[in-house]
Structures are given as C-alpha cells and as structure tokens.
C-alpha cells in the first residue's frame, strides 16, 4: 500500500511553503523599480529651457555621437545638493552633463545652481513630469548614461557619490 507515504504529502507541502515564506522574509522586495528602457533608445521627449540663455533638452540632442550623462534633479530635492558636487567633479573630467529639473521653476533652479554649483550644460524644465515618466524614472535624483547614438546604457537610481565616478567614467568611454 502506498497510502502511508501519501499521507505525509500535505505536511511536506506545508513545510515547503513555510521554508519558502521564511526565505521571503529574509529577502524582502527591494522597492527599487529600474527603468525597463535601459539598453533601448531614448524615448521621444522635448523640454523647454529651465534657464534663459541656455538650451532646453530634447531626445534629438543625444544622437550627435557624444555620450552624455542625463541627470534628473530638482531644486527642492535635498540629496541633489550633495550630488551636484560629485557631478561637478565628473564635469572636470570631461563628462558632458545634461540636466532635467522636475516640478521646478526658472528662479528656483537659478538659485539652486548659484548656491550649490553648476555642473550642467543644457537644462530642461519638466513641470509635469512627462520626461520622467517617459524615461521610466521613479524619483529624483536619477542619472542616465546615454551613448553617442542616443541609447540608454545605464540608470543610476539615487545620489551619485564619489564611489560611483569610476564606473560612470567607464560607461562614458563605452558609450563613445
């Protein structure tokens, strides 16, 4: 009779579930949602200039053969203050940084840059978060590495720190 064996099956299944749930406790959902556009071309977007006398940002600007960093930031974003100094060091090493300010205004952006330094080339203003959603970005700050053909090579979620500089420089070389 195979019955005595079968009778243990539900208990075994229950134990298996317990193990699975326990493993799930130790491995919580990390709540970081990466953009699924990494590795794909930039989505269509066009933002007006955040500052007078400096260009806005459109997807067509990224296909001129030059790799760029695209930094999504905001003057109201506290960690961005810390990040701007790191971006300035990247700029000193020849990295072209394009900014997109989210839910912001010309005077606030100008004030933010005057206080914390200005590592940006062009800065676009995205008051309705359209570019952010088009990119699959979930917050500020976020930094994208865009290669010379306008393809997204990498998405950095959160503050860029000095420890990230070598990796970003490598990616910039790769994007040429």
């Amino acid at each position: 009779m195979k019955r005595p064996v079968l009778i243990w099956l539900p208990a075994l299944f229950g134990l298996l579930l317990c193990g699975l749930f326990y493993a799930g406790l130790r491995n919580p959902d990390d709540h970081i949602i990466p953009s699924t556009l990494v590795g794909k071309p930039l989505p269509e977007f066009d933002t007006p200039a955040a500052l007078p006398g400096r260009g806005g940002v459109a997807s067509a600007d990224f296909t001129d053969g030059k790799p760029r960093l695209l930094n999504v930031f905001a003057s109201w974003c506290v960690p961005c203050v810390q990040e701007v100094g790191v971006l300035a060091r990247l700029r000193e090493r020849g990295v072209d940084i394009t900014g997109i300010a989210i839910h912001d205004s010309t005077t606030e952006v100008a004030d933010f840059l005057a206080r914390n330094g200005d590592p940006y080339g062009a800065i676009g203003l995205d008051n309705e978060g359209r570019t952010q959603v088009a990119f699959g970005s979930t917050g500020v700050p976020e930094t994208f590495v865009i290669d010379g053909t306008g393809r997204i090579l990498y998405q950095h979620i959160g503050v860029v720190t000095d420890a990230d500089i070598p990796k970003l420089l490598d990616l910039m070389r790769e994007g040429r």
Partner: peptide, 10 residues
C-alpha cells in the same frame, strides 16, 4: 505604454 517603461511591476 507604462509597462514598457516601468515593467510588469507598475
């Protein structure tokens, strides 16, 4: 269109 950007998660 949204799933294309944020994945099935959204």
């Amino acid at each position: 269109w949204l799933v294309e950007r944020y994945g099935d998660w959204v």
